[in-house]
């Protein structure tokens, strides 16, 4: 019975795809574009965790999702690369469109979608292999076999996250031996070797010390020049430091809702919703 829900959870994406049928934008390097989240609701079994979210995420910027625990920020994030498919009994309604990509194709194939949409988790989760294998594994699985190509991608993504100088002489030692902050940057590099357009981050600094947190935040700012970043965070100061746009979630009558959304400065300086005003007092 719950098995069926998985099938249902695919449906909105397929529907979403057909709704933009014909409006395929070319894979361009143009900065314009946005991710359109329309009326999205997520439920686990009979319990709805987040409902009726409509949100437009501009391309090549940082959008922070903030709000208290349990209001569905992470659930929403997991829908964007359809990682919610892994959760039995999870069903999704509504649609998510990437204005600059072929949504029909993405809807058919979550592998394609997840290659374009990278993700960073709460706890660093490198595979317990060597640093090199962590980085080349996904490339090989995606059909990149030429060693020269692989090596150059590994080097450039390690440089991008500032790890190259720290680990270039021990690429074959275990990734688990790295510190927490290094592991998290390795995970970021692991996502970057696939050259994703969008990066999802689920409280990426919650398990890190302040210095590592600062490094990640600097990275977020530099990555956002060429990539769209959606960041779930519990740290309001972090949101203030890195976000261009902020979306505030709140649990109303047991269900997560989007209560306010706008430019970071506007939301922090002139919150419109009274719950946001109270919440941001602690910022």
């Amino acid at each position: 019975m719950i098995n069926d829900n998985r099938a249902i959870s695919l449906e909105p994406f397929v529907r979403a795809a057909s709704s933009v049928h014909g409006t395929v934008t070319h894979l361009s390097t143009a900065a314009e574009g946005h991710i359109d989240i329309q009326d999205l609701s997520v439920s686990y079994g009979k319990r709805t965790v987040v409902e009726g979210v409509t949100l437009r995420v501009p391309r090549n910027s940082v959008t922070a999702l903030i709000g208290p625990s349990g209001c569905g920020k992470s659930s929403l994030l997991y829908c964007i690369n359809r990682l919610n498919d892994l959760v039995p009994g999870c069903s999704v309604e509504g649609s998510i469109n990437f204005s600059w990509m072929d949504n029909k194709h993405l809807a058919k194939n979550s592998t394609q979608l997840r290659r374009q949409v990278g993700m960073l988790f709460q706890r660093p989760n490198p595979f317990p292999f060597s640093i090199r294998k962590n980085l080349e594994f996904a490339l090989r699985q995606h059909g990149i076999k030429a060693q020269a190509d692989i090596n150059s991608r590994i080097e450039s993504s390690l440089r991008e996250v500032g790890l190259w100088d720290e680990v270039h002489d021990r690429l074959d030692s275990s990734a688990i031996a790295l510190s927490g902050g290094q592991q998290q940057r390795l995970c970021l590099a692991r996502a970057l070797v696939l050259n994703p357009d969008v990066l999802l981050m689920d409280e990426p600094c919650s398990a890190l010390d302040p210095i590592s947190t600062q490094k990640i935040e600097t990275l977020i700012l530099s990555l956002a020049q060429r990539r769209t970043i959606i960041l779930v965070t519990h740290s309001l100061s972090q949101a203030r430091r890195v976000a261009d746009q902020v979306a505030v979630f709140w649990k109303l009558e047991g269900v997560g809702k989007l209560i306010e959304c706008g430019k970071a400065r506007d939301v922090f300086d002139r919150p419109r919703h009274e719950l946001t005003q109270t919440y941001l007092q602690f910022a």
Binding site: H105, H142, G143
Partner: peptide, 16 residues
């Protein structure tokens, strides 16, 4: 760096 295009993947990746 080139984007991993769908054509590359379809050719060498008989995952299905």
């Amino acid at each position: 760096m080139t984007l991993l295009t769908d054509e590359v993947v379809a050719k060498v990746h008989p995952t299905k």
